[in-house]
Structure formats: C-alpha cells, structure tokens
Design a protein around this nucleic acid. Sequence first.
DNA 1: CGCCCTGTTGATCTTTATCAACTATCGTGG
DNA 2: CCACGATAGTTGATAAAGATCAACAGGGCG
Lengths: 230, 230
Amino acid sequence: MPSFRPFTSEELKFVSSFKSGELVAETGSSILMEGAHSAHLYTVLSGWAFRYKTLVDGRRQILNYLLPGDLVGLQGSVIGEMDHSVEALSPLVLCVFQRDRLDELFRNHPGLGFDVTWLAAREERMLDEHLLSLGRRSALERAAYLLSFLCERAANVGMGGKGTTSLPLSQQHVADTLGLSIVHTNKTLRRLGNMKLIRWHDRSCEVIDVAGLREIAGWEGAGERRRPLI
Amino acid sequence: MPSFRPFTSEELKFVSSFKSGELVAETGSSILMEGAHSAHLYTVLSGWAFRYKTLVDGRRQILNYLLPGDLVGLQGSVIGEMDHSVEALSPLVLCVFQRDRLDELFRNHPGLGFDVTWLAAREERMLDEHLLSLGRRSALERAAYLLSFLCERAANVGMGGKGTTSLPLSQQHVADTLGLSIVHTNKTLRRLGNMKLIRWHDRSCEVIDVAGLREIAGWEGAGERRRPLI
DNA sequence: CGCCCTGTTGATCTTTATCAACTATCGTGG
DNA sequence: CCACGATAGTTGATAAAGATCAACAGGGCG
C-alpha cells in the first residue's frame, strides 16, 4: 500500500478549492491555543513550529515539531476542540483549509481521506518514540535523539544543509521537549558540543554529526522516504 | 461535527463483511510484535492490553493501554510496518479485520473512514497527555494521572465498578508506563495507598477515589462521552 | 545607558535509581 | 506431603541523576 502517489487531477482540483488562504506568522507568535473551538485546519508551507501543553502552574511540555507538509489542527478539526497550543519557531507560512469541508474530502476523495489518516498514524509513531525517550532514555540520550530526529525531519523536506544542519531552537525549547531543567539541558548540550557532535549558536543548533547522535541515542531513524503531501 | 452516530445499514453490512474472524489471547501473550510486516488490523472486543516499545538493552516503555473499542495495528495497516508491540493484560478477545480491504473502506464508506481518523486523533490526544506527564509531572502526580486516566477509560466502556474500579496491572506495568524504577514506583503507590486513594491487591489496583487522584495529578479528565465504534 | 534574553558555570539540595535483603503466594516436581 | 524456584510486592541504605539557587557574561535594543 503505497503511502505516496501522484494526485489525480480531480484531487488536485479539490485540494486547491479546499484552500481558503494563507497565514503568515512571525517567530514566537501563537497560531492556535488550547481550548479553542472551531479551530482551523492548516498545513505548514514553510518554516518551523511546535505543539505544546502546559500544566496550570506553568510547566510546559513540547509535544512535537511542525515542518513543511505537516497538518496543524487535525485534532481540533476532527474532535472539535484543541487540547494543545501551537507556536512558530521561525517565520512561518501556513495554508488555511476550510474546516467545514473536511467531510466533503472524505466523501468525495477517499484517497485524500486515507492520506489524512496516514499522516495521523505517522504523528502517532513520532509520539511513541518521544514517549520512549522521555520514559527510558537518559538526559544525554534524549538530547541526542531529539537533535538527530529533527535533523532527519529537516532533511526529509529538503531543509538539511550539506554536511551540517541548522535547527532554529533555544535551549529552553530543548529543555521543554526533553522534560529537563534548563540548567541541566545546558550542561548536557555542552557535553554533546565537547564531543564535536553539535555546535550551539545563538538560538540555533548546528548539527555536525547526525550518525554520532543516533548512536548515542540508540536510534536508527524513522527511515521515512515517501509520504502524502496535502 | 458529531463524532458518534448510528451506522447506516450499508455501513453495518460492510463492517460485518470486513471482519474475518476473532482472536482470543491469554493474559501475557503477545499479539503483535515490533517490526512485523503485513500486520493485521484489529479491534478489541473485550479485555485489556497495552502497547510498548523497547530499547536494545531491554528498557521498556509502555505507550498506551487498549480497551474494548480500540483499534489495534492501525499504524501497521496504514504505513506498512509496526513499530511497537502489543501484549494482553487480561484474557483478550480481538476482532480481526481484512487489512487489504482498508482502502475499500475509505472508498465506499467515507463515514467509516472519518471514524478511523477520529480514532487516530483521539489516540494522539492521549499520547500528548502522556508526554506532558512523563516530561513535567512528578512521580506522585504521574501515578495519580495514570490511575485516574485508566479509571476514566474503563468507566467509558462500562468496566468501572460502582464506587471503586479495578485495574488489572502489576507494579512493573505502572513503572514501565511512568518511566520510573520499580522500587520507586512501589514507594509512590504506597503513598497513594496511605492517602486512601487506592488499594493494591495482587496484580491489580483498586481505585477508591478517582477525584482525589485527579486533583493530585492536576488533570481534569478527557471528558469523552461519545465516540465511533467500528 | 540599562534592561531583557540567552547561554554558562559552580555549589548545593531533592528526587529517583540501584543494591540488597526479606515476605508471601503459587505452582511444580520429587 | 514438602522442597523448590519463580513472581510480586516491601523496605532500608546508599549512589547517581537531575533540579534549584546564585552569580555572571554577551548581545540586542529601547
């Protein structure tokens, strides 16, 4: 069952009519907030963002990152209410879909409906791996996993540099993803730096040796090649 | 957009033709293994199970629990390979679907296709909350969250007792879900026991005060009422 | 200039892991 | 019948990982 296939002309026609506009957001701006009803459905056209949840006292957990091609707001569109927030990590361009036509998509374009499910299953896999990381990997392993994971994702959408890749993150983002304090995160990243696997610049991480990171993490990569793009 | 609706007679006819049999499993038996290709697609008819991943050195992380009505093996069916394993927590009955007819489901029964996506989005929500738990809650909060979470899920499928609910888990399962050592898990559960919120029996947890657990966890519950059942 | 944000580092405290020893229960084979 | 090992749970002592506190450096920007 191939996950990536060329769109039929019918599908292309529908997809372009399905779009209702574009949304441009600056670094740090909120795209969607937890609890919002009638959330829109988007895809990322360019840029980086992340999804997160917070506890009442302010502790924040980053759940996953959003890169070009990713759906944003599917939970809200399907279930009716967002239970997480989304924020831009870089200048971001989103394609806005008409949420109330999602049932039309399933009705008239089953291939696209399948693609949406495929994307949801893919998100589930990433969350599974993140859970394994938070639950059972050490701080160093977690950091190595996260950075190699983001590197692979960037490479999959053509955002990897030749040789090294730059990730637009602050150490606070890394800490909130790994479930660590910011101080300990700093010391852990420093260790990776001392091993010549990464170099930290202001609000960005240059990954020098992805294979080295993967080895520390004990992670083989998701090995994703082809995927549907809505 | 209602998430639960009566099936049309067409859908009912398809769903029953879609089934290819039942699978009965004993407590502790493996249903699906990581890496399996051409995995089947199932739903749980009765009993409890859990999904998990392991690192090469054996560290195990439980990702989520499976109760009646849950889909099993969707990732494998949609993407083509399982990346986690599934094991029965109690005597378990599964309904086996014909995986190769999944595209037919999307093509001819868009409402059912939407329901599958709805279930995937729901799984995503649960994983989001688990991530928040592992990343940002303390051991006591995590344990309280897990037990109240399982209690709510049991109640949603009519498996809650009147007053108290019994969860068929060992402390090892709890430890592997919370990302804690078994010794620390034991001490943490003991604290919940001393607060009269739970009572631990042999390989099962009796939840006495769900509201108390939720308060400790700082969790309001998923508040799920209606859902599609395939 | 001064302030805020990001990153850095050392000292100390807390949480959680590890180690070890012990109890109770259950099923199996002698 | 008992001895045996295997599985679950319990508890205290100690070690390690990570959190918290505090102080400081550099850059950007009002």
